[in-house]
Amino acid sequence: MNEPASIERLPIRTHNDIVTARHAAREHSARLGFGRAYQTRLATAVSELTRNVIQYVGEGSCLIEDQVDAQGCSIRVTVEDHGPGIPDLALAMADGFSTSGGLGAGLPGTRRLVDQFQISSEPGLTRIVISIHKAP
């Protein structure tokens, strides 16, 4: 039997929301029994992605979904904004690339923290989905 997934949707509008989002990510991962290393990685990844939203667009959202089933459990985080989009995704995903003078870890740094990382971007919608998994 699958347990009902826990879903939390957080608006990302201010710097305080970055803190709220990374706390929520940690709580979800702690509740599902992820080790502290995973908790820290996920919380840090969420912090990086939500900060990008504030820095480049100003407003967006962060959706945290837990999934528990026979294959184990996972947490999926979707960070979205309705900004102008990332003009060159391949470049943005290249290590060492930054448009903001190296302020963040960049998307490649964030990708290394999680098990799955998907990004799509077009004018009006940038969506990044990350997830971590744990065997039962």
């Binding site: 502290r36 290393a37 908790q39 820290t40 990685r41 840090t44 990086e48 290590d95 870890a105 960049g106 490649p108 740094g109 964030t110 290394r112 923290l113």
Partner: peptide, 13 residues
């Protein structure tokens, strides 16, 4: 913290 150190280095910071 150890997990902070791991995360920062994995991230390239």
């Amino acid at each position: 913290q150890p997990f902070v150190a791991m995360t920062l280095i994995e991230m390239g910071r």
